[in-house]
Design a protein around this nucleic acid. Structure first.
Lengths: 300, 300
DNA sequence: ATAATGTCTTTTATCGTGAAAAAACATTTT
DNA sequence: AAAATGTTTTTTCACGATAAAAGACATTAT
């Protein structure tokens, strides 16, 4: 089958949304920059839009003829990257239970089960390995280390170390740094969310990630910034499967974020440290309580 | 060409060294455990040893007939992993100069130049990316971030954070922990090396790695332990190309290690912290002085 | 009965191949 | 002349295929 055209389909869908807003589309290079794809892909998109009667296309003129209907869009599942598909499948198995630490991971079996080539699975596993959940045996299989209590503790230990340092660096940033404006915007979003938490509590996870990434960026250290990928991945799946008291948890977290933001704005390192510690402590607690404790298992 | 048989060749070479020591070889499973390969590979090795008249092999009896000659060994370069070959090629280019930050990395070109398939190069780049020297642009090329001063500073910042914590954890380990014996052994090796530093200074780098890995392991944190891979990789290549004052540098470092070891044994956290800081400071200095300062380059 | 050897099956590592997407080059339009 | 469009080339991504290596099963020896 070689390569799927999900880049095209995804960009096409996003392109359809542009049609609502204007009478005519901009130049090809501009569209490319807007949708984050090459001109080659833009031209395929335009060609299809012309075919389906959405636009009239002649060289520079790209006039919108009608608004897109829901059946103009490609189905969501066709716009995913192979690597996203594999990740989702893999995490489902991992969290579905029956995935005991020490268990071995079979590339061929995974590939067959998901219906993709072995190369893609191999590449996924290599990329995934930096999360510390799997490990490779030289010229042999991968071993699942498992999403255990030990894993969560090791992860949060580093997270706390990194975030305390980043927060301190953040508070020390000069007044004219653009991050303060970013922080103000995030603060507003937090305020709005706090007010409407009853109905919009599930929007917190995305806000949470943006907030912590902003702070970590102040470290100016690529290893710290990159480590947030591990945390984000874990929290992403954690949020998906642990829905217990989600509203309450998020409400508390929003409050902690606001206190944390106030501390940062005060630029008082003692206050920043305290607010950061408090939030990280409850984040750790939330994560830990959602992990089944299989303490007695052999763990090599 | 599919797969090279370097596993077999490397294990064969290591197997030849066993012939010097005994009159007859152990069972196949035992040999497998000894050389770290499967029985399938062991049997190929035995078959060849029989063919070349090194042993007489009949079921359980594997009698050594003669000592191996130098032409019995496979040439060194045939025993390397593909991934080692690619890494070496890649690092040579990176350090040879002309590799400016921001430069793009072409998988196909690399593959052609090294004479391997693109898959292997891709997998190498994915694995290598965790070192923070390269970065992938979404469905496009890789970008070289470069072995810059900024990189070295970010690397050492994390290293210091992790090692101070590990050293403290180490010093807090109970007296009956086996690490103290390991530490004693390493101390002896340091003493011996200190005495013969004039001629054996180039053996330091390997000892250095073993020492620091022992300390990091005390953290019981996979992220800390794994991070040492980044440091080890950088120092490995750094040692290879910066030979200026190698003897003096290593002599100083051995001394610092001995002081560091003494501090650990004292279990006095203040002393440990001081000795660790002192050593890390000079390690950082050594690394920084060997990096050409191309500060003015755009660095995205 | 345990542990080795002998044989067969499965999995991993690597390549060449081809379609999707990007990038480079050439031509036209404003 | 600058910026767009049109065309061609190159690179990335993903697959199936194949030899090396691992692993499983069957048989034999202690």
């Amino acid at each position: 089958m070689s390569k799927s055209n999900n880049v095209y389909k995804d960009a096409y869908n996003r392109g359809l949304r542009l049609l609502d807003e204007t009478k005519s589309l901009p130049s090809e290079p501009e569209l490319g920059a807007l949708l984050g794809v090459s001109r080659t892909t833009i031209r395929s998109i335009l060609a299809r839009m012309e075919e389906t009667g959405l636009i009239a296309w002649n060289k520079r003129s790209k006039t919108v003829l009608r608004a897109p209907r829901s059946d103009d869009f490609f189905p969501e599942e066709e716009t995913d990257t192979l690597s996203q598909i594999i990740e989702r499948s893999f995490m489902r198995r991992l969290l579905a239970g029956g995935a005991e630490p020490g268990m071995q991971i079979n590339e061929l079996e995974l590939a067959r089960e998901i219906g993709v080539g072995t190369t893609s699975v191999r590449e996924f596993l290599i990329r995934f390995s930096r999360f510390g959940l799997i490990e490779k045996r030289r010229n042999s299989h991968w071993v699942l280390k498992g999403f255990t209590r030990a894993f969560a503790l090791e992860l949060t230990e580093i997270r706390e170390m990194f975030e305390l340092r980043s927060a301190a660096a953040f508070a020390a940033l000069p007044q004219d740094s653009p991050v303060w404006a970013d922080l103000d915007l995030l603060e507003d979003e937090h305020r709005v969310l706090a007010r409407e938490i009853a109905t919009r509590f599930n929007e917190f996870s995305e806000l949470d990630e943006r907030f912590h990434r902003l702070i970590h960026r102040a470290s100016h250290n690529r290893f710290i910034v990159d480590f947030y990928d591990v945390i984000a991945m874990i929290f992403h799946y954690h949020y998906q499967w642990n829905k217990a008291q989600e509203r309450e948890r998020n409400e508390v977290a929003v409050g902690e974020h606001l206190a944390y933001i106030a501390a940062l704005k005060s630029r008082d390192l003692g206050k920043v440290d305290a607010a950061c510690r408090k939030h990280l402590k409850s984040a750790r607690h939330t994560l830990l309580t959602s992990i089944p404790d299989r303490a007695a298992l052999p763990q090599q």
